[in-house]
Nucleic acid binder design. Structure first.
Length: 677
RNA sequence: UGGCCCAUGGUGUAACUGGCAACACGUCUGUUUUUGGUACAGAAGAGUCUAGGUUCGAGCCCUAGUGGGCCAACCA
């Protein structure tokens, strides 16, 4: 058994506890309840991963339930997209459910509640009701309609259902407690009149149930054991429980299990937004090409960008589940996709920013078909042929006339390897009138062909370049993406709208040259463009035109070195430490002082003494009052005091008292320090 | 002038109350390499928001403070 015991997250702990307390494993059941009012994004992926992941872990069913109680915002397009995305991620739902399927049941229960005096029709304006609701710090007051008779309520509610009233004239409210500190308990709305076409129920209803009433009861009807949602629903839990307890009496034999709502922190990603409303705005204002624009953090966008379900799942697994607000660094997402693609994507060569390279000693008109390994990480990936000739394209970035020793690429008089081909040496350059390099001339070592086994072929050269034969190159459009927002948290600024941070340069279209092998590529195929990054074939590709999306770049150490080299010449600069006051550091050192082994204690003492040089007496004095038992802190204070006294601090009553008290202490270390003073 | 939730390296998540707090990403070194990728080896970086308390012993329990989040849609 090499099974590694992974630590459980808090939700798994809850489930394990429930199981331990006698809950039958086969009653476990979960659900993912999106509202079909937009596309799913990477944040939803966490919720999906949690509930579907739990389903897999416990072999329990997971329902996909569309929370479709607001016909004004919801559309079939979104239902289809949501199903497509979840299926693409590789999850299978047990049942496809719709809250709207429960409208009748919900209605029947509502009649019961009215009869039991637990709900009433209110006929005020929304403004009047809002006023009576109070505020978070102020209790509410009862509606004048709160005590309508059951008969009157029944009749009015029937009228609402029958379409006898205009929208906004009446609502149905639960009768709970207008003084509850939780505002959701102050007679929440259960139904409103809405003359709108519903994507499933058409015009059958003109009253629609509200979220709290619908969601919890949908869970109950489906007998969901654990209803998991994000943190902002925590206050709803009290209402969730209230409704479910009222209903329980009506149907306990049919629906014996009471679901349990638990909340986790939603996922936030740096440099992007996670709000369907805001994403919709980007779509509507055409800042992106649609919900599936590869720059969008939607699942559809990520898919089109070239992300894989595995990478996304790994990502969600890695970020974990907890209750504190978090912002995940995009670098983690990028790590996950690179890790996956590194193992699975075939290597090819493509030049995005070309400059002509002529091998002057290579015969004109000669073409060789060279072997190119598809994937060094996968022995079974095979290889393909790549044509080589006298005139090639290489990246402009890969040549420099005057290069320093840190530059491993092509320069005059030095040798580099052309990937899968020969070793070449830079000879000279041809420039246009403006001084731009138009051609690079080089010579090649005839015996150095990759894989030929000759002595020359195994010579070590500093750099390896990718290239493509001009005569054989296929033109392709490459869409290179930068982050959609320039700010780390675009929607977290009170004073600025997230739209202000939209990066105007998030898309760059490049006309690239790719090796002919790519002519066969199909929409969705993923490749590594050697030395550049991962790319996938976009759905806009036609028979005439190949289009690639850049998924993510390779890790680029050179990109990090380059600016440093320039910087070093520019400025000497000393680095700014984030400084905490020295007394704070002393307190910290002191806290653990007594637990340290002797050797480390000595080091800590020296540190304290050094820090003490910069401690003003006013900072130290409060520490004299440290509780007797916190001897570590007192020792640190004593050491500090020693330094201060040495530096001319005068003794006073407080100081003497502190020393006296220390001399009487049972901690020997403290006594020793005190004696020295 | 309320209620609820949260607080652990730069980021995210762990840690049965018990030995100088672990893992991943990120950062930095080095080795290998026909990708300045990958892989491998290693390093730096927190002493767990603060103050009290309980305990022989607290990141974990209690109290208070501080900081952050959520709650006043006929949205979900």
């Amino acid at each position: 058994m090499t099974e590694e015991t992974k630590s459980l997250n808090f939700i798994e702990h809850i489930i394990e506890e429930d199981l331990a307390n006698g809950m039958a494993k086969d009653t476990l059941r979960f659900r993912f309840p999106p509202e079909p009012n937009g596309y799913l994004h990477i944040g939803h992926t966490k919720a999906i991963g949690i509930s579907f992941g739990l389903g897999e872990k416990y072999n329990a069913p997971v329902n996909l339930r569309f929370d479709d109680t607001n016909p004004a915002k919801e559309e079939q397009e979104y239902v289809d997209a949501i199903k497509r995305d979840i299926a693409w991620l590789g999850y299978q739902w047990a049942n496809e459910c719709y809250s709207s399927d429960y409208f009748q049941q919900l209605y029947d229960w509502t009649i019961q509640l009215i009869k039991d005096g637990k709900a009433y029709v209110d006929s005020q304006s929304s403004e009047a009701m809002a006023e009576q609701k109070g505020t978070p710090t102020q209790v509410g007051t009862n509606s004048p309609y709160r005590n309508r008779t059951v008969e009157e309520n029944l009749e009015l509610f029937q009228g609402m259902k029958d379409g006898k009233f205009e929208a906004g004239t009446h609502v149905l409210r639960a009768k709970i407690d207008m003084e509850d500190p939780n505002m959701l308990m102050r007679d929440p709305l259960m139904y409103r009149i809405l003359f709108a076409h519903h994507h499933r129920t058409g015009n059958d209803w003109c009253i629609y149930p509200m979220y709290d009433w619908t969601h919890g009861e949908s869970d109950y009807i489906e007998q969901i054991s654990h209803s998991l949602c994000s943190l902002e629903f925590k206050p709803h839990r009290k209402l969730y429980d209230w409704f479910k307890e009222q209903i329980y009496d009506y149907n306990k034999t049919e629906y014996p299990l009471l679901p349990k709502q638990r909340e986790f922190a939603r996922l936030n990603l740096s440099y992007t937004i996670m709000s369907k409303r805001k994403l919709l705005k980007l779509v509507e204002e055409k800042l992106v090409s649609g919900w599936d624009d590869p720059r969008m953090p939607t699942i559809s966008g990520l898919r089109r960008r070239g992300y894989t379900p595995n990478a996304i799942k790994k990502f969600v697994e890695t970020v974990g589940v907890a209750k504190r607000e978090n912002v995940i660094d995009v670098s983690l997402l990028e790590f996950c996709i690179r890790e996956d693609l590194n193992k699975t994507a075939n290597r090819v060569m493509a030049v995005l920013n070309p400059v002509k390279l002529i091998i002057t000693n290579y015969p004109e008109g000669k073409v060789e078909l060279l072997d190119a390994e598809n994937n060094p990480e996968d022995e079974n990936a095979g290889s393909h042929k790549v044509p080589f000739s006298r005139e090639l394209y290489i990246e402009k970035e890969d040549f420099k006339e005057d290069a320093g020793s840190k530059y491993f690429r092509l320069t005059l008089g030095k040798e580099v390897r052309l990937k899968n081909a020969y070793i070449i040496k830079g000879e000279n350059v041809v420039k246009d009138a403006d001084g731009n390099i138009t051609e690079i001339h080089c010579t090649y070592d005839v015996d150095s062909l990759s894989g030929s086994g000759t002595e020359a072929s195994v010579r070590k050269v500093k750099g390896t370049l990718h290239w493509v034969s001009i005569a054989h190159a296929v033109q392709a459009e490459v869409r290179v993406y930068d982050r959609l927002f320039s700010d780390e948290a675009p929607d977290s600024h009170k004073d600025k709208d997230f739209m202000e941070f939209v990066n105007p340069n998030s898309l760059t279209i490049v006309n690239a040259f790719v090796e002919p092998y790519l002519k066969e590529a199909k929409v969705g195929d993923r490749f590594q463009f050697q030395r550049l990054g991962y790319f996938c074939v976009d759905k806009d590709t036609t028979a005439e035109k190949l289009i690639f999306n850049k998924t993510v770049g390779l890790r680029d150490t050179w990109a990090k070195i380059k600016p440093k080299l320039q910087e070093n010449q520019a400025k000497p600069q000393q680095k700014q430490q984030h400084q905490r006051p020295p007394i704070e550091e002393i307190k910290q050192l002191g806290k653990k002082y007594t637990n340290l082994p002797e050797e480390k204690q000595q080091i800590a003492k020296e540190k304290i003494q050094a820090l003490a040089e910069n401690v003003p007496y006013e900072d130290l004095e409060p520490l004299f009052a440290t509780a007797a038992k916190k001897s570590g802190t007192r020792i640190a204070a004593m050491i500090t005091l020693g330094v201060l006294l040495k530096n001319g601090q005068e003794r006073n009553g407080n100081i003497n008292e502190f020393i006296e008290k220390a001399l009487d202490d049972k901690n020997e270390l403290l006594v020793a320090e005190a004696k020295q003073l």
